[in-house]
Write a protein that binds this DNA or RNA. Structure first.
Length: 340
DNA sequence: GGTATTTGACCAGT
DNA sequence: ACTGGTCAAATACC
């Protein structure tokens, strides 16, 4: 058994190494004329984020991590989450524990500004399928459960939960769990996110440099940003306290949407603004509606916080698997668009 | 008809 | 026993 100190130190080292690697990448990009300014900027921000994380580790009172703290780190000392997932997958997804206790998870909060239209956390480029919604004790709004659409085909166990903040309905709390093991993860590249996008939609620009930033800072490991687009419906402020809230599940929402409130997420938009990956030609999802809402370009999307929490050993974002062992996996960076 | 979502029930962890 | 997470049948949508 290892003591906490060891874990912290390990995470700190990982974070610092990550920063070093990012700096290295930046250097490479600086020497490559074809490298886009956005990429460089992203790297810079990533480096900063990495240092901030490292500092926050040294200073527990730091405000970076908000955690969704979950179960304590694995006592075995080895990052077994991924292995556990694979085991489950290998055995039988259906019979696997319904509560994936050992899954790493991190939360991201996204603010949507009513009246402006908004958007959310963007596209992570992953396709998600809603498999449940539940009222949570103490929460005003239900929580929506989404899983990677590649789950069945590729056994990808990544899932995410979306819920409106109790205190501030303008904030979406998105919790990612598990790592993407599907091909989507390998195809994503923040630097060129919308490759498959057909018509350009001005509605939302899924990948602004800043967003890349956010993404990378949250999950360097790539996979996760999840893609939601949240659109704020234009309603009167009086309605902000809002009634029923539903999550965007991709599509269906339409009918009910009308009924709900300030935030509508609706698949119908997809047509206007979509993101998606499509290696497999799956669906494009986006949350948000497009009816009376204003869209994203002006939307004030604020990624307020992102925190990563690993149930097992790495409490920091981006250190989740690949970095947990203090090894950089080129693919990881590749996924993040750091490498060509 | 195929695919995605909804929703009540079931199961596991605390 | 309670709560959160997932399953799966029913339903809706394209």
């Amino acid at each position: 058994m290892e003591n906490m100190g060891d874990w912290e130190q390990k995470d700190l080292v990982n974070e610092l190494m990550l920063g070093r690697e990012l700096a290295r990448q930046l250097q490479i990009h600086l020497n490559v004329p074809s490298s886009s300014p956005e990429t460089r900027e992203t790297l810079v921000h990533e480096i900063q984020a990495s240092y901030e994380k490292a500092l926050s580790m040294l200073n527990p009172t730091g405000s970076i991590a908000i955690g969704v703290s979950e179960s304590p780190p694995s006592l075995s000392g080895s990052p077994r989450t991924e292995d556990s997932e694979r085991e489950l997958k290998d055995h039988d997804l259906r019979h696997a524990s319904r509560k994936r206790k050992g899954m790493p998870r991190w939360t991201r909060q996204v603010r949507v500004s009513p009246g402006i239209g908004l958007e959310g956390p963007l596209d992570d480029g992953f396709s998600w399928r809603k498999y449940g919604q539940k009222d949570i004790l103490g929460a005003k709004y239900p929580r929506g459960y989404y899983r990677c659409t590649e789950r069945i085909v590729q056994g990808c166990l990544a899932t995410k939960q979306v819920q409106l903040s109790n205190e501030d309905p303008t904030i979406f709390q998105i919790t990612y769990r598990g790592r993407h093991t599907c091909t989507q993860a390998h195809m994503l590249s923040p630097s060129k996110p919308l490759q498959n996008q057909g018509p350009t939609n001005t509605v939302m620009e899924p990948q602004k440099p800043q967003e890349n930033l956010q993404q990378q800072s949250q999950d360097l490991s790539s996979d996760f940003l999840s893609g939601l687009k949240v659109i704020t419906e234009v309603l009167d402020s009086s309605q902000q306290s809002v009634p029923p809230f539903y999550f965007p599940s991709a599509a269906s929402v339409k009918a009910d949407n009308e009924a709900f409130s300030p935030y509508v997420v609706d698949k119908s938009f997809i047509e206007n603004s979509h993101f998606s990956l499509s290696s497999s030609g799956m669906h494009h999802y986006s949350f948000g509606g497009n009816r009376n809402f204003q869209t994203s370009a002006e939307a004030e999307l604020t990624d307020i916080i992102c925190a990563a929490t690993s149930t097992t050993d790495s409490p920091t974002i981006g250190l989740d698997f690949p970095f947990a062992n203090v090894e950089f996996d080129p693919n990881t960076f590749d996924n993040s668009g750091f490498l060509s």
